[in-house]
């Protein structure tokens, strides 16, 4: 295994990182809540927010009404039961990248993903989002309050999307990113889709921020607002993708990778069983696999050339360059 080459890596990433002085990539994957499959957490008490990685997710819970809003943490796997009683599950039935836990947002108004104090003013790199089971099945089959997408004839140009905007220094940006959770506007209805898997949202273009605003927009609205259930599931929120090379160079870590640079076969040595991922500099996961203890070989020749961070179980990983 080749030794890590700090000078080379720093050269490659410096253009992207600009003034960021060696902070770490932090992924909020909510696994620290240790939920078992089927469980959820909709009460952040005594806090008013869930925390994971470098983000905070606000939560409102009314014990008197047994009612929640904002964000919940979930490991629910129910992908078949429609209706609001199944409001905590993601339609893929698991978290992003085959993880167990994810977050569920109830977006009746714009809600925010706040950066924790140490991350404020730094960029949010990206996240995975998908439909909740409740929303997905409502759009697919309709419910007493919301239409099935396509409408009565199947030809209605329905849509559901999330608009991301950033808050920076207290100001909401005018720039936005729209991500469609469902889109029935295609002339060829065969292309109409409901998002049923986790999809990556690249937020790098926003640059530094204090928090991220998310708002849902649907084509199905009434006098009382949106008819489509306004839930979204979110996972693996990456708040920075820089690695301190001192950490990466740590030979005592549970993860050993090489050769570096690599063009064909990458060897990964794992001291502890778990989910291994490769993330590019935009925070996008381009490979993941559950690896047992031992040495493994993966083919990287079809990866785009660039720098990747190989990490395991969401822990700080190691950079490699694919050439």
């Amino acid at each position: 295994m080749k030794k890590f080459q700090p000078i080379k890596i720093l050269t490659i990433v410096s253009a992207f990182l600009m003034c960021h002085n060696g902070s770490a990539q932090i992924v909020a994957d909510f696994e620290e809540y240790n939920l078992s499959a089927g469980e959820y957490l909709n009460d952040a008490s005594p806090s008013s927010a869930f925390q994971s990685g470098a983000i905070e997710l606000t939560n409102y819970y009314d014990a008197d009404f047994n009612f929640w809003s904002g964000w919940a943490i979930s490991a629910d796997t129910n992908t078949t039961t429609p209706g609001f009683l199944n409001q905590f599950s993601a339609i893929p039935g698991k978290g992003a990248l085959n993880s167990t836990t994810y977050s569920v947002g109830y977006i009746f108004d714009p809600i925010v993903v706040r950066l924790q104090p140490q991350a404020i003013g730094k960029p949010m790199i990206g996240m995975y989002i998908t439909n909740s089971t409740y929303t997905y099945l409502s759009m697919r089959d309709g419910d007493p309050f919301a239409k099935k997408f396509g409408g009565e004839t199947g030809e209605d140009p329905d849509f559901l999307f999330i608009t991301f905007k950033k808050y920076y220094e207290g100001v909401l940006s005018t720039d936005s990113i729209n991500v469609y959770l469902a889109d029935y506007r295609f002339a060829d209805s065969g292309k109409d889709y409901l998002l049923s898997d986790w999809t990556y949202v690249d937020l790098t273009e926003f640059g530094p921020m204090d928090s991220l605003s998310m708002q849902m927009t649907s084509s199905d609205n009434g006098a009382f607002g949106m008819n489509t259930p306004s839930y979204v599931c979110m996972d693996h929120v990456t708040t920075d993708n820089l690695q301190l090379f001192e950490i990466i160079a740590d030979e005592d870590s549970n993860l050993q990778v090489g050769p570096n640079p690599v063009s064909d076969r990458l060897f990964i040595g794992v001291k502890k069983e778990g989910l291994c991922t490769a993330v590019n500099l935009q925070g996008q996961v381009i490979w993941f696999k559950h690896l047992n203890v031992g040495n493994h070989e993966i083919q990287v020749s079809n990866w785009p050339k660039g720098v990747y961070v190989i990490s395991q179980n969401g822990e700080i990983g190691k950079k490699i360059s694919v050439q």
Partner: peptide
């Protein structure tokens, strides 16, 4: 039995 709406595939209510 409560029938589905015209924009609902089925109902079991």
């Amino acid at each position: 039995q409560i029938p589905p709406t015209s924009t609902q595939s089925y109902s079991k209510a």
